[in-house]
Amino acid sequence: MRCARSSSSIRARAARLGISQAQIAEALSLAVSGSDAGYLHDGASVYPLPIRLRLSAADQSDLSSLLALRLRAADGSLIALSEFVQVQSQPWEQPRLHKDLAPVVYVTADEAGPRDSPLYGMFGVISRLGDAPVAGSAVAQHFIAAPADTAQFALKWDGEWQITYETFRDMGLAYSAGLVLIYLLVVAQFRSYVVPLIIMAPIPLTAIGVLPGHALLGAPFTATSMIGMIALAGIIVRNSILLVDFINQALDQGHALADAVVDACTVRAQPIVLTALAAMGGAFFILDDPIFNGLAISLIFGILVATGLTLVVIPLLYYARLQGRATTSAVV
């Protein structure tokens, strides 16, 4: 509903009575928005409390109550507001929305239920849109970039999906950069291009603990879970370096290869396990955090599985490499 401008006769009548359009607007503003008549200083609060005059919520939504308001004319008489207003019903003009200079229509939804991520509902809608043509053709769906042709109907998934995609994309790039830096550092330490690959072999094994750990606790894989996997790369590589370095020291002292590998696992197992338990114990304190529980799950289950596999995989791989080199040297 809109209050249309008064006709010339109504404006003329209001002028004769000494009531201006500003008075009419102020009366409506007082009834709907209210006006502060004064301030209350009760001493209980630091700031004074405003005393606001306005109609009740029920009267504000009732057009007849608003039109029953009275204005004082120049002669002192009270005239109802309905004498100066003509009410007309008109449709509201719909807004025209644009994004990147292209016309758009936003369709929003919120998902409720046991699944806290809206992406599950999004994937369910994606599978159904293929069977719902628009203008005689299937709707083109875009997940990363906006459609290039704005003359055709198309769907661009945004919102929670766009945030999730950009977050995991950036996390993946950071994970890849971290692996490259770790590889270069280990190459500089051991002067070999193959040994760093053996040392970094347990890094993919962390997924064996991280993903089942999330499934076991019924927790979604979040951005903080990805941060935990990035942190696991450094923790697992450290354990591998300890084993390889101990084997090299034993070989330099004249020990046999098999004895050096067994001694490395025997001597280094206790500090490696104690360090892993300390890291897992620290992660338990944030396990019930609604934001960082993914980080805690990644650290706890990733360290648990990867530490056990590191004590087996690294000695076997390094033993196989050195044994192969010794065999090749003997044959030559």
Rank of each mutant, 00 (worst) to 15 (best):
A58S: 14
L71M: 02
G18Y: 01
K99R: 12
Q94F: 03
Y193G: 12
I144R: 14
G172R: 05
I208F: 15
V194K: 10
H255W: 04
D288S: 12
D62R: 13
H142N: 12
D170R: 14
R54K: 05
A80Y: 09
A279N: 14
R115E: 15
R72Q: 15
I10F: 02
G130H: 07
Q189H: 13
V194E: 02
Y183R: 05
G136C: 09
S127L: 06
A264W: 08
R2L: 06
Q23N: 02
G294R: 05
V267S: 10
F143L: 14
I314A: 13
S6V: 00
I300W: 01
I198N: 05
Q86H: 02
A148T: 10
Q94L: 06
I163S: 14
R13W: 03
A80P: 09
I208L: 15
S6R: 04
G136R: 06
Q21S: 09
P118V: 12
L274H: 04
P315Y: 08
Y193Q: 01
L71E: 01
Q253Y: 07
V134M: 07
A330K: 11
A57I: 08
R321D: 02
G172L: 07
G18N: 03
V261H: 03
V107I: 15
V305N: 06
A22I: 07
G43K: 12
A109T: 12
S176Q: 13
S77I: 04
V331I: 14
L251S: 09
G172T: 07
T164F: 13
F301W: 07
M122N: 04
D59H: 14
P133Y: 11
V332H: 10
A12L: 09
L53V: 03
Q249M: 13
R54N: 00
P271F: 12
F153L: 10
N239A: 11
L78I: 00
L311P: 08
I247Y: 06
V134Q: 05
V104H: 05
A22H: 08
A278H: 10
Y47Q: 11
G38D: 01
M200C: 13
L243H: 07
P50R: 00
V195Y: 10
H41I: 15
I126K: 13
S6K: 01
I79M: 07
G282H: 06
S29H: 11
L274T: 10
G38E: 00
K156N: 08
L71F: 00
D158V: 02
R13V: 05
G43F: 14
L205E: 11
S89N: 06
R128D: 12
